[in-house]
Design a binder for these strands. Structure first.
Lengths: 151, 151
DNA sequence: AGCGAAACGGACCTGATTATCCTATTGTCG
DNA sequence: CGACAATAGGATAATCAGGTCCGTTTCGCT
């Protein structure tokens, strides 16, 4: 469904989105919190910095941070630079000709699945995720400890 | 979305489902019609035979055929033995604890995506696919000739 | 029985993905 | 300025999916 790399990227982005404040996060800090191999995570974050989703800062106190407000970064923005999403547009059965008029037997089924998937990635922002509270958190004040404000 | 192996399997199964008659199909025949590498396809079909979706028959005139009526084989039955679908049940963000009560921030989003995907796989049968006719086929009698034949 | 057609099974090759390590570069602070 | 902290980036290793090859087994046919 998602490559390992994509999943790691998502974990890191969620971590940064939920962290209060504007400062840079070090790779080690993110790696420790998300359980992603630090060296590999560094590579992934470098890619995301190159694709303008993150800012990076070398030197003491440096690290990575979101390049834009949370609500302007979608899951798609995170996944897209790391996986070959274009493959989704190709016919599942490998037919050269497969569109809404001349379709392979799976065309409609697959179109629906793909549409739902991409739609979710496009419509879900890091803001949505940062705001998320599980049922347990909503019911039990203890869970509200790592408090965020806003909205 | 789907591994190469899963896609190949789907192509072969669709071919067999759409082919009239009850006889065995040889690997070479299927490979030629679907564009899947013959040797690799053989491995895939062997796996499907082991997982009771296909019957196989050695020797002259042998090959593979569906083990059950078309309408009793779902896309899930085809994909499941070949990919690690269990991975879908694990939390995308790698949290040890992630369920409807105590959830990770992506739990609901991912649950919806996964549900749509698995739902389609479970509810679509080879019968549905075999019956499928594209708009062009329905409108233009030329297309109603058995579209899949080569050799 | 003997031959050829076909699946079966194991060994092996290959390239992409995942992961690690080392050095260079860049920034902060004393 | 010099020491240190942190990313950048290149080289390399490990793992795995995808793919090939070949010998064996099993069957149908003559």
């Amino acid at each position: 469904m998602l490559t390992q790399t994509g999943e790691y990227a998502l974990r890191a982005m969620v971590y940064m989105a939920r962290k209060p404040g504007e400062g840079f996060c070090g790779v080690k800090e993110i790696a420790a919190s998300t359980g992603v191999p630090a060296n590999y995570l560094a590579k992934i974050l470098q890619q995301l910095a190159r694709s303008k989703v993150l800012d990076s800062q070398k030197g003491f106190g440096g690290g990575f941070r979101l390049n834009r407000p949370r609500e302007e970064i979608t899951l798609f923005d995170v996944i897209d630079p790391l996986e070959r999403v274009e493959k989704f547009d190709q016919c599942v059965l490998g037919q050269r000709l497969c569109n809404d008029q001349v379709a392979c037997p799976l065309h409609e089924t697959w179109k629906a699945i793909r549409g739902q998937y991409l739609g979710s990635l496009h419509s879900t922002t890091l803001q949505d995720i940062a705001d998320f509270r599980s049922k347990a958190e909503l019911l039990d004040p203890k869970f509200t400890a790592p408090a965020l404000s806003k909205r």
